[in-house]
Design a protein around this nucleic acid. Structure first.
Lengths: 216, 216
DNA sequence: ACCTGAACACCGTTCAAGT
DNA sequence: ACCTGAACACCGTTCAAGT
C-alpha cells in the first residue's frame, strides 16, 4: 500500500496555492530541515518533478512561505499612541507572526539572505519611524536594525523551543518554562526599547544643535 | 589523472588542524554552499568517511570554523576611551572578523542557531557594557541585541558582495561600489550607535528617578 | 592513530513524453 | 495546464576492515 497522508483535490490537479499551503503544513509540523521537495511531493501525492511546474526552484517556494508567514504582520495597521508605541507594536506583531510557524524566523532570514522580500519588512517599521519626524534615511537604517534584532531574537527563541521539544512533558507544565518565556519576552522588549530610546535621544541631540553625536 | 589540488602532508596523515584549515580555505574561495564533506575530503586527498574520525559531524566542523573566524575579534582587548568607545570598537572588530571570510556571518549564525559558541560572542560586548556601570542582566540583554544587529548587518553585506561578484569587473573599480561601501559602513555604525545611545539614555532615565520608561 | 571501500538513505533539478 | 517516469549529479553518515 502506498503511504499517503496526501491531500489531492477531487479534480486530481494542484495549484500554486495547494503546494504552498501543504508546504506550510509540513514546515509547521516537522520543521525546515524536513521540508524537502520530495517529501512535499509525496504529501501532495505527486512526483517530485511536478513541483517545478508550480515553482522554478525550492528557494522560490521558501520565499512564498516567507511572504505568507509575514502577511499578518505586514497587512495589519494599528492606531497606538505615538510613533514609539506604533514601532514597538510593529515589532511585537512581527515577532508574533514569526512565532506562529515552526522555524518561521529561519524561513524569513534565509529568504532575506538571498535578497528577496526585504522591502516590505523594512517598510513595516520605516513608516512609523518617519511618522516620528525622522528623515527617510534615518528611518530606513533604524528599521533595518530593528528587523535584524527581531529576526535574531526570534531565531534564538525558536531554537530553544526545539531543544525543549526534545524533553518529554508528561502531563503538566514545567515551572522553568514559564519563567524562561517571560525572560524571553522581557529581553525582546528590552532590545526593541533600546533602539527606540536611542532614536528619541538622537532626536533630542539634534534639536539641541549638537549634530554629530552619533556620527562616528 | 585524479584531480587533486590536495594538501596532503608528507607523513600521509591529517590532523584536526589540517582539516579545519583546508575547510576554511574552501569556504573562503567558494562559499558555504560549496563546502561539502565530499569536496573537503577530496581537497585533502582522502575518502569522505575519513573526516568523521576528526569531527563527529558537519555541524561540529562548522562550529570549529566559526570559532576560528571569531578568534581575532574575541581575543583582542583594547583601551579605547570610555565604555561606549570600547563597545563600538568591539562591534567593529566583530564585523571585521566576519568580513574576513566569505560567508563568515552565515557560518557564525548557523552555529548560533544550533546552540553553540554563543557565550563568547555575548561576553565580547557584555564586559565593556558592564564596565559602563550597567548590571549584568542589562549588559547581557544589550549584548545579545548587539550580536543580532552585527550578524544581521554583515549577513546582508556579504549577500550583496555575492551579487556584485556575479558582475564582471574588467580592470577598474565601478564608482557605485565605493558609494555603497561607505553607505554600508555608515548604516552599520548608525545601528550600533543607536543601541549604545539607547543605553546611555536609559542610564540617564534611571538616575533621574523615572525608573520605568523602558519597562513596558 | 588514521584511513579505505563500500554501502545506505537520501537530496534538488531536468526533461521528454503523456493526458 | 498539470503531471509521470526516469534519470543526472550530487549529498551526509556509518562501519567493518586495513595499516
Amino acid at each position: 500500500m502506498p503511504e499517503s497522508n496526501n491531500v489531492r483535490p477531487s479534480g486530481g490537479r494542484h495549484s500554486k496555492e495547494d503546494v504552498a499551503a501543504t508546504a506550510l503544513l509540513i514546515l509547521d509540523q516537522f520543521g525546515l530541515p524536513d521540508l524537502t521537495m520530495r517529501r512535499l511531493a509525496s504529501a501532495l501525492d505527486v512526483q517530485p518533478g511536478a513541483l517545478y511546474w508550480h515553482y522554478p526552484n525550492k528557494q522560490a517556494l521558501i520565499a512564498e512561505l516567507a511572504d505568507r508567514i509575514l502577511a499578518p504582520a505586514v497587512l495589519f495597521t494599528d492606531e497606538s499612541q505615538g510613533w514609539e508605541g506604533r514601532t514597538q507594536a510593529a515589532a511585537a506583531r512581527l515577532r508574533d507572526a514569526l512565532l506562529a510557524y515552526r522555524d518561521g524566523a529561519e524561513v524569513v532570514t534565509s529568504t532575506l539572505a538571498i535578497g528577496l522580500g526585504a522591502t516590505d519588512l523594512i517598510e513595516l517599521f520605516a513608516a512609523s519611524i518617519r511618522n516620528g519626524g525622522f528623515d527617510p534615511r534615518t528611518a530606513r537604517r533604524a528599521s533595518t536594525a530593528l528587523v535584524h534584532l527581531v529576526l535574531g531574537h526570534v531565531g534564538q527563541e525558536q531554537q530553544r523551543l526545539q531543544y525543549d521539544g526534545l524533553g518529554v512533558v508528561v502531563d503538566g507544565a514545567r515551572p522553568e518554562d514559564a519563567r524562561r518565556e517571560t525572560e524571553q519576552d522581557d529581553s525582546f522588549a528590552f532590545g526593541v526599547a533600546l533602539l527606540i530610546r536611542g532614536l528619541t535621544a538622537l532626536e533630542a541631540d539634534l534639536t539641541s544643535a549638537d549634530r554629530f553625536v552619533w556620527d562616528r
